[in-house]
Write a protein that binds this DNA or RNA. Sequence first.
DNA 1: ATCGGAACTG
DNA 2: CAGTTCCGAT
Length: 461
Amino acid sequence: MDCNCVSDLLLPPVPTLWTPGLTKSIAFPDWAYKPESSPGSRQIQLWHFILELLQKEEYQGFIAWQGDYGEFVIKDPDEVARLWGLRKCKPHMNYDKLSRALRYYYNKRILHKTKGKRFTYKFNFSKVVLVNYPLLDMANSPFLLAQNHFTNGSSTAPDCSPEALQSLFPRLPDSVRAASLFDRGATAPSPEGDKLRLDAFPFLSSGAPCYSKPPSLLGPYPRSPPFDYPWGFNPYLPGAFSLNNCPKLPPGSLYPSHFYPNPLQSSLSGLPHPFSSLLHPGGDAGDRAGTGPAGATRLGLPPYPVSMSMGRTDLLSGVGLGAREGSPPGVGGLGIGLGLAAGPPGTRPQSPSERRGGVKQDPESDSDLEITDLSDCSSDNENDHEFSKAARSRSQIILEGKKGGMPPPLSSSLPPPMSPHPLKSLVPLTPPRPSLPPSLSPSLALHERHRETETLKMIHS
DNA sequence: ATCGGAACTG
DNA sequence: CAGTTCCGAT
């Protein structure tokens, strides 16, 4: 009653383009959403919220991607906590509580802490990706391969072949797998399915944090097709990929930003866009024809570009989050498209970050990355808690000796070291896995690869 | 600052 | 279940 919570107002149940089922099943795993049937379920979740903030420029003064892949820094803990409290109608929310909730994610492996860096956490995207896009071309995903590599040398490679996946999702006929992925609500409302997924890929859940090398691949591909993203985000708009819209690296980093693609995006880029059918029945959105994966193109899904800005709005909005997160602090509210709007917000509030001393980019962060990753790994192994149960029998995780990570000298206003032509790098970056487990090299994989190759050719020409 | 236990809530 | 709140320990 006394709560001025505007979340309801700002957060329409579901964006017009979404259906509840769709929303839930597509974007996130069940640990993100309880089944609609579950009473009292479906409240925004903290990590979704975090992603939402991360994705919007308006909040980059408060929280932003920074450092290693998937890493973000809460520049202004108080503000972020305030926003969170706003969203949850918890006027007394503060960073202490927020952080508790964040810690709560450690065991769930959704997040983990980047040790040594204040207010810095790291997303365990792989899990999210996999869970959300179990059927996508994993065999082709360097990211996943990398994970695989790290997790099990080779012997017990989990079977994530399309076939295997298919078996996990029998209700997702290949022919419509893409559609189904985003329509499971209607197709296969099986809450168990979600669980299954998680358990089905223990290698991802537990090994995820161990990677440190840029999984890489689909990086941003700056183009400027006039494509409209109704759900509020247009990767082509200025700012869409700007600075912190995606997990990126600091300037001094070893790897170019495109080395740290958003797994969610990468994954998505290989799939037809979920909404495309809704948005562009014709299946054609643009023109960028032939620029990306066939599927994507056909569906009007911007091929590579999409791969940046994180789970981006598509996911987020689906979550309901994307929806207006509100007019938070002064922010114009409907961030309808982040960058979108005339892009004025681009320069959002520097925010009091500094006021709190924010997370100054201390040089100390130097030795962290590696350590962080390693420690995370260990922690993963050690605190497997619930997760390990499922993965118990799994073979020990083999840590790759060296990590590519590098202590990023953080710099708030780093110019995006984005590669102008990620696709080029993409080529060399996607070497055919020499020891590709049989389970990973099904025809689909080949097919995908082939498609990709063709795409690249086209681009080059 | 960070962590995690514990009781509590919707 | 996903936090929220409180809090002592490190």
